[in-house]
Amino acid sequence: MTESLDRDRLAAWRTYIEASQRLFTRLEDDLRATSGLSFADYHVLVLLSEVPGQRLRMGELADRLVFSPSRLTYQVSSMQRRGLVARQPCPQDGRGSEAVLTAAGLLALREAAPHHLKSVRTHLMDDLDDAEVAALTRIFSRLGRRLRGADDSDATLATAPGDN
């Protein structure tokens, strides 16, 4: 049997889970109320707006969003029906497809961004001092790197010799 967490670590874990869920719910509720976008919609639009050509291969976009391929397909299809993104064949090889930011998607992002930023400030950032912001950045950067590495090793472990 796995050893239990000590009282302080258990309290930290439970506090993190409850507060992060409340924060995510509040940010998403605010985003939907002011723009009609979900948090996933907004994140897709942000990622596409930041890359050259405002387009990403579906696999790369799924990786950045930490979405399964089927979840990304559903997300992009929903956004495509609303005119926020388009799905086009990859110009480099024609085999894969890319999600491409549309003019309507860029406009939706530009209109949503100030309200979302205000929500992020109100519900998180304005309550933190510089040392706390630096600590959160260090902690979650380190965890993110470790978890990305774990994802890579999980994929390696899942591929048995001879399966290639």
Rank of each mutant, 00 (worst) to 15 (best):
W13R: 15
E60Y: 09
D6W: 04
E111I: 05
A86E: 14
N164L: 09
Q54G: 02
L65M: 11
V100T: 12
T137G: 01
R81D: 15
R145S: 14
D63I: 04
A112Y: 06
V100C: 07
A112S: 04
T73Q: 10
L109P: 10
S4W: 08
A108V: 08
L128M: 02
M79G: 05
A113Y: 00
A131S: 13
V46Y: 00
R9G: 09
L47A: 00
G94S: 06
L47K: 01
G83A: 11
L10V: 00
S20K: 02
T34D: 07
A33Y: 06
Q80D: 08
G59L: 02
G162D: 02
A11N: 13
A158G: 10
A155V: 06
A134K: 07
G83Y: 13
R95D: 03
S97D: 00
S153K: 04
L56C: 08
R146K: 13
A150D: 10
Y74L: 12
F24W: 03
R14W: 06
L143D: 01
L136S: 06
L109E: 06
V44T: 15
T137P: 00
R82T: 12
Y16S: 13
R32P: 00
T15F: 05
D130C: 06
E98G: 01
S4V: 04
V44F: 01
L37S: 07
S4I: 01
S153V: 14
T2D: 00
L84V: 14
R7E: 11
L27A: 06
A103F: 04
T15Q: 14
A86S: 13
L45I: 15
L31Q: 01
A158I: 05
D151V: 07
